[in-house]
């Protein structure tokens, strides 16, 4: 009885879904919503980039002036370089996350607990993380320098105040912040691999290292590609910890594209130029995503 009902329901469903008008009806609300809150503002941002506008008064159309100024703005390219550096570090750290997940997904004691431990930073808000690490990096009272002093380092680094190391000092919490997220993704993907494949490999005499490297990793290649894109794009548009911990300083040493955009628009009241930076940020992120997809494209997916 129940079976029949279900069958009938499915049949109805098929009929409904083959009607183009009905499909449109279902898709349209979401489409309109995403158009008005995502795509229209993107186009507007590109347009604002063509204006001389302080965000308050008159708008004057100045053509591509903002964009050509951008191309010669050394501070913008410096911040772009910093963003790409962050992207590079994020991608490298993906390797470490993968290793941790492979170990966690093996049948070891307490892997459940560890998985949760790694996930905790992700549950904290960025502001809390920033406050926490500002305390860690405090030049005189910070945990880091207290420790360095106690083991006899005479002049411990100034961390966030030193223009040559501030960027790396701030990368650490950023990477730490997202560790749990990627470990969780990898862990879930690894857990999806059928046990029988691992069993078969083990019977054939493969070492645990070989199982991980030759069997597990190729099988989750699709997920790895996605995480690379996520890590790179996430890094390119990164903003929060930098804004709170150093505000791009000292002297622009930790400025990234998004913080530079914010500064131009909201501190210097140059909405036109800020929009141009924002639009460029989008273009860069799109290009990089496309490049990564191209570079990592394979002819066939590895199948189970």
């Amino acid at each position: 009885m129940l079976y029949d009902f279900k069958k009938k329901g499915e049949h109805e469903m098929d009929k409904v879904m083959s009607d183009k008008k009905v499909i449109l009806l279902y898709v349209l609300p979401a489409l309109i919503l995403i158009m008005t809150i995502v795509y229209v503002p993107i186009i507007l941002t590109g347009y604002y980039g063509l204006l001389k506008w302080d965000g308050i008064g008159e708008k004057t159309f100045i053509g591509l002036d903002n964009y050509s100024k951008l191309l010669t703005d050394s501070m913008f390219w410096k911040s772009t370089y910093h963003s790409f550096l962050l992207a590079a570090f994020s991608v490298i750290s993906l390797g470490a996350y993968l290793l941790v997940s492979v170990i966690l997904s093996g049948k070891i004691k307490g892997s459940n607990l560890f998985r949760k431990i790694y996930l905790v930073p992700m549950l904290l808000s960025s502001v809390a993380i920033a406050q926490l690490w500002m305390k860690v990096y405090h030049p005189t009272n910070g945990v880091m320098n207290r420790f360095l002093l106690s083991i006899g380092v005479e002049n411990p680094p100034l961390w966030l105040a030193d223009t040559s190391i501030v960027l790396y000092a701030i990368f650490l919490p950023i990477i730490w912040q997202y560790a749990g997220f990627y470990i969780l993704i990898y862990y879930a993907a690894l857990k999806n691999i059928p046990e029988s494949l691992v069993e078969a490999a083990r019977i054939d005499g493969a070492s645990p290292w070989q199982i991980a490297y030759k069997i597990k990793v190729p099988l989750i290649a699709g997920v790895i590609k996605v995480t690379i894109v996520l890590a790179v794009v996430g890094s390119l548009k990164y903003f929060d910890l930098i804004y709170i911990m150093t505000d791009g300083g000292p002297n622009g040493a930790s400025e990234v594209m998004a913080s530079y955009m914010y500064k131009q628009a909201f501190r210097m009241n140059d909405f036109g130029y800020g929009s141009a930076v924002g639009f460029f940020l989008l273009l860069i992120a799109l290009t990089v995503t496309w490049l990564i997809r191209k570079l990592t494209a394979t002819k066939e997916e590895v199948q189970y």
């Binding site: 500002m134 990096y137 405090h138 030049p139 005189t140 100034l158 961390w159 966030l160 105040a161 030193d162 501030v166 150093t246 300083g249 000292p250 002297n251």
Partner: peptide, 16 residues
Amino acid sequence: FNRGFNGLSNDEAKSE
């Protein structure tokens, strides 16, 4: 000035 002043906020300096 106190150590690392360029990386400290005014509130942190005030607490010094």
